[in-house]
Write a protein that binds this DNA or RNA. Structure first.
Lengths: 205, 205
DNA sequence: TAGATAAGTGACACCGTGTCATATACATAG
DNA sequence: CTATGTATATGACACGGTGTCACTTATCTA
């Protein structure tokens, strides 16, 4: 988390810094991005940076977290819309996430996040449907999810994790193999169908 | 790939360097590991390192690749043993991989690889059951896999990718949450059952 | 208006990378 | 056996990035 000092900054200074950081993290993945570039673009001295953040990661995960707040809300909305159907909700946010990326800078930011995703990045993404950090959000999820197909809460969590991992992995494959949006979504649907109806079951073709 | 010069080295020198590198990559993840440490341990001058490898990554992926050759063979063997059953084969190598890790250095190497896995690391792991790099290996896989439950080859590939992603993700969760071997394997089995029989199907409880 | 507390600043010490000019070893033809 | 070319070895160095710290400046408060 950024330090108190950062939040005390004027809106103008704050957004200038954030814009500079987004630009840099869109240009290069975390490990290649440099504080030097960020402060140059933002026009602040080196010492100030460390007044606001403990290091590069601090700023980075603050940004990534902010960006994913939207996905978190979207997931809730998708669940409401699809009457608690996990699969349809996931397909919807997968769609949202990969396809509705209007801003090129935003797109590159996320691309770098995914392609160079360490466990911390993965965990940040997982927060969208995970219990660990935002308890309230998680409880809301659990209320909305249709539990009928599942034995117990553990099964629900297990499925959420599994689908999350698949969605995450598919995003990476889409980016590395430069798949079209249509192909990517189709692939994901096929995989969701496997989980819904199983490999050893007659599929409704 | 390491340069010619590296392969021309005496066995003694080569293994000394490799041992030093393994030690360093077990100590720290790729982005924190330093060439400085490797050459210090191996007792070679800095210039020589660049005679053998183009950079840190070059050496790293050479090592990781070598290590995964074993898993590649194991997967083939597991498929033979289980008469082409993808699920049982995966469970077996998942087991092999996470549990049969006798050497602590080896364990830490893999741990760092998984926790700080970028798309290149993920792709290297995916080579175990992927078509892109080792065509011959892939064809052998396709011969062995029981195609009965699947509509076509594409479906088989899709399932392989999916299970691969789940196994990969589970390994990371096991390491971050420090799950016991038993719990990790049990979780994986539950998830495999979901794919086998589907969520919307009566399970044989 | 003094004194305290918070914020701003940039020079600096430190560390790691990749290169390059130079040195050395080795092979091979004359 | 020597000359000459080719492969390998070496470490000093330029470059660029990080995090800190002593010092300055601004802001608040009694």
């Amino acid at each position: 988390m950024p330090k108190e000092t950062f939040f005390n900054l004027t809106e103008n200074k704050k957004s200038k810094l954030i814009e500079a950081a987004e630009q840099e993290f869109a240009r290069a993945p975390l490990h290649e991005a440099s504080i030097a570039n960020i402060i140059k673009t933002a026009g602040i001295p080196r010492g100030s940076f460390y007044q606001y953040f403990s290091d590069k990661e601090d700023l980075y995960f603050f940004l990534l977290d902010s960006k994913l707040q939207t996905s978190k809300k979207n997931f809730i909305e998708a669940l409401e819309k699809h009457h608690g159907d996990i699969f349809e909700a996931f397909i919807e946010i997968y769609n949202d996430f990969l396809i509705t990326m209007p801003d090129e800078e935003e797109h590159n930011f996320i691309k770098n996040a995914l392609l160079f995703a360490t466990y911390r990045v993965e965990n940040t993404f997982a927060d969208i449907f995970d219990s660990t950090s935002d308890r309230e959000h998680f409880n809301r999820l659990m209320e909305l999810i249709d539990h009928k197909p599942f034995k117990d809460k553990e099964e629900v969590i297990s499925i959420l994790q599994m689908i999350g991992a698949i969605a995450f992995h598919n995003s990476i494959v889409k980016l590395t193999n430069k798949l079209s949006d249509e192909v990517a979504i189709k692939q994901f649907r096929i995989q969701m169908d496997f989980i819904k109806y199983g490999v050893y079951t007659e599929k409704s073709k």
